[in-house]
Computed example of a mutant assay.
Amino acid sequence: MASGHLYALDFDGVFCDSCGESSLSALKAAKIRWPFIFGEVNSAMEEWIIDQMHILRPVVETGYENLLLVRLLVELKVPPVRKSSVAEGLSVEAILENWLKLKPTIMSEWNEDKDSLIDLFGRVRDEWIENDFPSWIGANRFYPGVADALRFSSSEVYIVTTKQSRFAEALLRELAGINFPSERIYGLGTGPKVEVLKKLQAMPQHTGMTFHFIEDRLATLKNVIKEPELNEWNLYLVTWGYNTEKERNEAREISRIRLVDIPEFSKNLK
């Protein structure tokens, strides 16, 4: 039986603040998907959209949702292009509060398909990386101290993310100088995070280890709590990622979840 600690770590919101990059990628993709709407968007409005996306980032679970959000923001500001019943009178704060209800409504009313939006979002990122890699890297940043925590970690570490694995791998390499093993990155397409955690704990080499899962999304941690099979996992919500004060306060009331700041994260990982 192995002893020691295994850490499953989210990527965006734990290591990487990718909000600038994902918002710009969403704008590029939205111009391709909906030229009849985004042809009217000028640079001042693009700046406003990117500012609002920093507020809305906590609701994004998978990258393609950024496309939906940038279009919804345009519909808020430009009534003539509205195609959704929810846009009138909607505020950015209301989107933040009600995204899970709004998303299926706008997907239906815009006649959109999740898989094709995921493909488009990935393709736009790939083209940006291919055509101007330095500016793509520069649109991301790592939270202070977290890369060193990973670099000097003596624990068994896996990255479990809804980002495409190749993007996470490139960012670790270019921003942090860390060549993280690709087989330890479970990215988009490897299944829901709860299933990845089950897979990790079932590996024979991990028998007897202490399991830790570190996330910035409270909803993801709640999904883990619903799975009796995952009762052995210690759960942590980071205080620096894409979550709100309201969510952090809620997490404090849940006995399974501990809040963790960067100094404690670094100390634990080492």
Rank of each mutant, 00 (worst) to 15 (best):
G187E: 01
E264V: 00
E65F: 07
L9P: 02
N231R: 14
E112T: 04
P228M: 05
S25R: 01
Y186L: 05
L172C: 10
W110N: 11
S25A: 15
F152E: 10
Q164W: 04
P228N: 05
S255G: 12
R252I: 07
A87N: 06
D132I: 01
P228F: 02
F213A: 13
N140I: 00
K246S: 14
D17S: 00
V70P: 08
I178M: 06
K77F: 10
S23I: 05
R252W: 03
Y186I: 01
G63L: 02
K114G: 08
N42L: 10
K83E: 15
P204R: 00
M203E: 12
N268P: 06
W48S: 14
A87L: 04
V59M: 03
V60N: 07
E215W: 00
F167C: 09
I185F: 08
V146C: 08
E195H: 11
V160R: 02
Y7G: 05
L175M: 05
E232G: 14
G191L: 04
S23R: 00
S22V: 00
Y7D: 09
A30V: 10
G13F: 02
G177L: 00
I95V: 14
G241W: 00
A2F: 01
L6H: 05
M203N: 08
D12A: 10
K31I: 03
G189R: 03
P35A: 13
V260N: 01
G13A: 05
R123D: 14
P263W: 00
A94H: 11
P134V: 02
D115A: 14
A149F: 07
M209R: 15
I49D: 08
Y242W: 00
L237R: 02
A30P: 14
I185H: 08
K267Q: 11
V194F: 10
A168N: 03
P79S: 11
V157R: 06
R125N: 10
E250P: 13
P134E: 11
I214K: 01
Q52H: 15
L24N: 04
L171R: 01
R166W: 14
G187L: 00
K163D: 09
T244R: 02
L230P: 07
A44C: 13
N98I: 02
L237G: 06
V92Y: 04
L73C: 11
I50T: 12
K222L: 10
E40R: 13
N42M: 11
I55N: 09
L218W: 03
R166H: 13
E47A: 15
K267V: 11
E215T: 04
M209L: 14
S23V: 05
I95C: 11
E46H: 09
F142L: 15
L237K: 04
F265W: 01
R123P: 09
E88I: 02
E156V: 14
